[in-house]
Amino acid sequence: MKVHQDINEKLRAFIAAQRMFFVATAAGEGHVNVSPKGMTGTFVVLDPLRVAYLDFHGSGAETIAHLRDNGRITLMFCAFEGPPNIVRLYGTGRVIPVTDPSFGEMLSWFPESPDTHGARSIIDVAVHRVSDSCGYAVPLMSYEGDRDVLLRWGERKDDAALAAYRKLKNSESIDGLPALD
């Protein structure tokens, strides 16, 4: 394993080439959560120690609840194609919900995103540790394309329906921690 001072150009290029990444969070008590993320244009490196991703509606809100609890977050990128490599970004995240007045302005961070209507928040991460490791056991897999199911789901909902969904499914974590208001 190698620890880097920041996200240098080589690491930035590696991160940009990955079609999916994993998000890990945990509250002080309760379950640890790991979520796969993807979709072209939904992850950005803002500067050498800051990244962000669009967080779309889902059946749970563990990441949001955990970040509200303590802010701890780890992002992991694995090479499923090409030379083996794993990059981990450790940091402190903050949630910018769709209801935040600055949310719309911050969407400009994601000029390559195909659609942002179904997004429920932006996760903004201040990175304090960057490392990479071999990834020799990560399998080789071929990328066929992004799934559009989540985007199509969001397109069928207006803002009121999305707000009702957040209230029903995303107001607290599986451990009862507050997530989205």
Rank of each mutant, 00 (worst) to 15 (best):
M1N: 13
K2A: 14
K2S: 12
H4F: 10
Q5L: 14
E9M: 07
R12G: 03
A13D: 11
F14V: 02
F14G: 01
V23W: 01
A24Y: 04
A24M: 07
A26F: 04
A27G: 15
A27D: 02
G28E: 15
V32T: 14
V32L: 15
K37G: 08
M39D: 06
T42K: 03
T42N: 12
F43A: 06
V45N: 00
L54A: 05
A61D: 02
T63N: 05
I64K: 00
H66I: 09
L67H: 02
L67M: 09
R68Q: 11
T74H: 02
T74R: 07
C78Y: 00
P84K: 04
T92F: 07
V95Q: 00
V95T: 04
P97Q: 04
T99R: 05
T99W: 12
D100I: 10
P101L: 12
P101I: 08
F103V: 09
F103Y: 14
E105K: 15
E105I: 14
E105F: 09
M106Y: 07
P111L: 08
E112T: 11
D115E: 14
D115Q: 14
G118I: 07
R120M: 11
S121T: 02
H128A: 10
V130Y: 02
S131P: 01
C134M: 12
Y136T: 11
A137L: 12
M141E: 11
S142I: 09
R147I: 13
D148Y: 10
L150G: 11
L151E: 05
G154T: 13
G154R: 04
A161D: 09
L162E: 01
L162T: 05
A163M: 07
A163Y: 01
A164D: 14
Y165I: 07
K167N: 12
K167V: 13
S171E: 07
S173T: 08
G176L: 06
L177T: 07
L180Y: 09
L180A: 04
L180R: 00
L180Q: 03
